[in-house]
Design a protein around this nucleic acid. Structure first.
Lengths: 181, 181
DNA sequence: GCACGCGCTTGCACCAAGTGCAACAAACTT
DNA sequence: AAGTTTGTTGCACTTGGTGCAAGCGCGTGC
């Protein structure tokens, strides 16, 4: 059911745009009531964003599984690679990335997701930056994770604009190199 | 009038919280109609965020006024310093920063503001990263600006949590150093 | 077979943000 | 004095989102 609604909604989104598609239209097209839609999804944006909390946990687990002596950049790069694997359909991902361009509310939710990921990943990064275990939250770790996510977003964006031709990992590395030069 | 509404609304926000304060309450407290509120502000969030576009233009102007041979990090650091001057009341700034913590919609708008700033500042940074004038938009410049804004946000956040005691510029430098180490 | 409980679905009423439109009043111009 | 602008307002409407309670199918125990 969840998947069925998602499929129906995504078709409408790419056809009419995200903002121009109302929840009533989605519900009607999926053959359910408007109320039931909100039973499955907390908001319209959730259809596109999926379960970002679970994905964030996956990234966190991947990050913490990296060797303890690995540098922060190396570790977070490796952790981000699990995202490439977990994203299934390539053309669908391109469609999602395209929706972001003209849907402010969608971008906003995506950025909020990034904020939650920040809090999730910051503790491990803080350790890798040399802080003792159990130290107070350090703004430098937050800034680091936010910057890494910014590089990731820029890489994904450029990958989408290349139509899937460019290598996301390489784009990410280039972005990171620009910061550190 | 603009300022009058802002004062009234901010008082309600700090008293009841941002989400719990309705536009009707603000309008009633300010002695105007609900419709007139939306004549002055496009949204409830705009009351708190102020005119971010104008502020972004100020930063852009400051950035482009820096010497052409200055490095990207040096130039953007200097440009951000004009923000510290343009923010007037210190205690009010602390109150605003506090509102962010429990108002998701507010955070989201703030992040959208950052996105617009990204587009505003990226061209100049791209030049400073070595791209020829008139080149196609480079994701590295976008990533760079986003990372710089992340450092800025982290610095402001840490400054707010210190109660205004810490030096924002120093916090910013520390965040940048963590990225580049 | 039948009542009972459980979970999913739905309709309904409601709230709050935001927009478009037209009316209205006061001030200002010619 | 007539006309024009400008600010303000009321009203109706759209959309996202929530709370509540009724209904409905369905399997279980008696």
């Amino acid at each position: 059911m969840h998947a069925e609604i998602t499929r129906t909604a995504m078709a409408l989104f790419v056809a009419n745009g995200f903002d121009a598609t109302t929840v009533d239209q989605i519900a009607a097209a999926a053959g359910i009531s408007r109320r039931s839609f909100f039973h499955y999804f907390g908001s319209k944006e959730d259809v596109v964003l999926g379960d970002t909390d679970a994905l964030g946990e996956t990234v966190r687990a991947a990050l913490e599984a990296r060797p303890a002596d690995e540098s922060a950049w190396q570790a977070i790069r490796a952790a981000f690679l699990v995202l490439a694997e977990s994203q299934g359909d390539l053309t669908e991902q391109l469609a999602v990335a395209h929706l972001y361009h003209d849907a402010p509310s969608l971008r906003a939710r995506h950025l909020e997701k990034n904020l939650r990921w920040q809090e999730l990943l910051a503790p491990d990064i803080q350790r890798r930056l040399g802080a003792p275990a159990g130290a107070a939250p350090d703004p430098r770790a937050r800034a680091f994770v936010a910057a890494a996510l910014a590089c990731l977003d820029a890489a994904v964006d450029a990958w989408q604009e290349s139509g899937g031709a460019a290598d996301p990992a390489e784009l990410f590395d280039q972005a990171v190199a620009a910061l550190r030069a």
